[in-house]
């Protein structure tokens, strides 16, 4: 290997030999050389893969979840049509609560409304509280509905569909029965069978 010095410009005018030697060193093993720029790129790729995987897993997990039918009833607040602000926790330890999700555009809701009013009127003296949660209706239509069926229990709009998300409801009507100590006893999808419904309320009231 010829030594290269600054004072020998004629034999190696472009400094090629130095470069060639450096090149020979790196290609000696004939293996591709390590690419140092990969590391931040690799991190980005891994981060993207982790994010997408997490997104898919959580998405599928949430899809597979059943409507909430046991365990503690999630607390929520509701502003009723007559301006009251109520919370589910107001009734914990005191009342059995029935939460009914309804909508004016849903025919089964219209069908079950008289039944719900009857059951409410029968059981309200025993301290059972009914809360009607409306989805997506303009106030005018909701109030018409309430007047039409003489509904006397509290009703309010589920702002942003938050309460429906909490209870993982799918459609309307759905009815949740919450025990005195705040546990979900039953989650009826569709119209509840009146006999079974009344029986459940009896059982719930019997609990201390």
């Amino acid at each position: 290997m010829t030594e290269v010095t600054q004072n020998q410009p004629i034999s190696d005018p472009y400094g090629d030999q130095e470069v060639l030697d450096a090149y020979a060193d790196t290609t000696a093993s004939n293996a591709p050389s390590k690419n140092r720029m990969m590391t931040p790129f690799a991190l980005v790729v891994v981060a993207a893969v982790v994010l997408i995987s997490a997104m898919v897993v959580r998405g599928i997990y949430k899809n597979e979840l059943e409507p909430l039918s046991d365990g503690p009833a999630p607390d929520f607040s509701l502003k009723t049509y007559d301006g009251q602000d109520i919370r589910l926790s107001d009734y914990k330890g005191k009342n059995v609560v029935v939460i009914n999700f309804w909508q004016t555009n849903c025919p089964p809701c219209h069908e079950e409304a008289p039944m719900l009013v009857n059951v409410y009127n029968d059981y309200k003296s025993q301290g059972v509280v009914f809360i009607g949660v409306n989805a997506k209706d303009p106030d005018k239509l909701a109030l018409d509905y309430i007047a039409q069926y003489n509904i006397t229990y509290l009703n309010g709009l589920d702002i942003g569909d938050k309460i429906q998300e909490l209870y993982r409801t799918d459609g309307y009507p759905e009815t949740i029965v919450v025990s005195r100590d705040g546990e979900v006893l039953e989650h009826y999808i569709g119209q509840p069978n009146e006999i079974a419904f009344r029986r459940l309320l009896d059982q719930a009231l019997e609990q201390s």
């Binding site: 472009y14 400094g15 090629d16 030999q17 470069v19 060639l20 090149y23």
Partner: peptide, 10 residues
């Protein structure tokens, strides 16, 4: 730059 030098020389 480097590659041109290398290619030319070798």
């Amino acid at each position: 730059t480097r590659a041109i030098q290398v290619a030319r020389a070798a």
